[in-house]
């Protein structure tokens, strides 16, 4: 039983199906230990978006207000995709490397731990 319902075999509408996003998919990005951004953020992007575009254009638009952002050594960033270690390749698209609809990308920036090291 996947829901207690008065109708037998009740099926709910999947409200966030990929098709509902007009060619985009949802991708979440969180920057570890930088809680000045209170939560991970959500983008709607074409699945074919190259990772380089995410890194060079989309992520800076979200996080560049943080003083640590300019200090990031991008070669040292540790990435996670849906909880598992992830080595993105810049030239491949999101979908080619498994970043599918409603996936979570986390980036950790070793040595950068937010305002006065507080995780903010």
């Amino acid at each position: 039983m996947s829901v207690a319902a008065i109708t037998p075999d009740y099926v709910g509408e999947r409200r966030d199906r990929l098709e509902n996003f007009h060619g985009n998919q949802i991708v979440y990005v969180g920057w570890d230990r930088h809680l000045m951004f209170c939560s991970p953020v959500a983008f709607a992007l074409p699945p074919e978006t190259p990772f380089s575009k995410l890194q060079d254009e989309v992520i800076p638009g979200a996080f560049s207000q943080h003083p640590d952002f300019a200090e990031i050594d991008w070669s040292a960033v540790v990435w996670h995709l849906n909880g598992a270690p992830f080595l993105p390749s810049r030239d491949k698209s999101l979908i080619e490397q498994g970043v599918d609809h409603k996936s979570i990308i986390r980036m950790a920036t070793p040595g950068l731990n937010g305002i006065k090291g507080s995780g903010s």
Binding site: S2, V3, G12, E13, R14, R15, D16, A42
Partner: peptide, 12 residues
């Protein structure tokens, strides 16, 4: 799950 797949999430 059949209930909460229907959630009207404002951001989405």
């Amino acid at each position: 799950p059949e209930k909460y797949v229907q959630a009207w999430l404002p951001v989405h």
